[in-house]
């Protein structure tokens, strides 16, 4: 049992790396959906057969349906409507991203070795993997230019937090779980609409071109000038 879990967790770490290395959006969306599948299955695998099984199963089904089907569908639709297929020239280049991701994994393993974790933890590598996943998500949010990739990064971040909860094997109540899922769903929905509007308004979804708001006028004018020439 534990070996299967360890393999699944290792797969999660690998998908993190793939996300950091890949520029194709369609692939990234698939990778995030795959992560959602693993993370959704995890509580079912851990619980095996308990008296609360039905509730866990229900949460797992809603979770997988949301993260593997609905959200990827929304993101795919947004990417089609906004005519974007790939991320071009992120703020942090792909090799550097991967290096940062690997150091993130190393740091989270090192940090978790010092914390008093509860005995009922599911696997030794679960908590550090969850923390490194949160780190990967944040890295994607800050290092990518396209609005859609940032939304994907947020999903990885959220998956990481969810996995962190699972790794400590805590049972949140049904309502809270569903509430969190609903929030994430609406968030991605709103983001999808925003991406569509950004592409209509700016003819691209590069958020680094969004620089018209600032505090110093000289700075704003300079940037606007840049946009005309560049």
């Amino acid at each position: 049992m534990n070996e299967i879990l360890d393999i699944l967790i290792a797969t999660l770490l690998l998908t993190d790396m793939m996300l950091l290395a890949s520029s194709r959006l369609a692939f990234c969306i698939k990778a995030v959906a795959f992560q959602g599948l693993i993370i959704g299955l995890m509580p079912v695998l851990i619980s095996g057969g308990g008296h609360e099984n039905r509730e866990i199963l229900l949460i797992a089904i809603v979770n997988i349906a949301m993260k593997c089907l609905v959200l990827p569908f929304l993101l795919n639709k947004a990417s089609k409507m906004a005519h974007v297929q790939r991320e071009i020239e992120p703020f942090i280049s792909y090799p550097v991203s991967i290096m940062l991701g690997i150091s993130g994994i190393a740091i989270s393993f090192w940090a978790c070795s010092g914390i008093a974790l509860p005995d009922r933890i599911i696997s030794d590598i679960a908590t550090p993997a969850a923390i490194s996943m949160i780190f990967t998500g944040l890295l994607l949010v800050i290092s990518r230019k396209k609005a859609l990739t940032q939304a994907l990064g947020y999903l990885v971040f959220e998956n990481g937090i969810y996995f962190f909860g699972t790794s400590l094997f805590q049972e949140h109540s049904l309502i809270v779980e569903l509430g969190i899922l609903l929030d994430v769903f609406v968030l991605i929905f709103v983001m999808g609409i925003a991406v569509f509007h950004i592409s209509r308004e700016f003819d691209h979804i590069d958020t680094d071109k969004m620089q018209s708001l600032g505090d110093w006028e000289e700075e704003i004018e300079e940037k606007e000038g840049d946009e005309v020439t560049g």
Binding site: L187, V190, M191, M210
Partner: peptide, 23 residues
């Protein structure tokens, strides 16, 4: 485009922040 920029910043920064509160 200005309000769009503000909205995007609001959604992204606040959601990531609130995500940390979930942690």
């Amino acid at each position: 485009n200005h309000s769009l920029e503000a909205t995007w910043k609001y959604i992204l920064i606040c959601s990531v922040g609130i995500g940390l509160a979930l942690l």
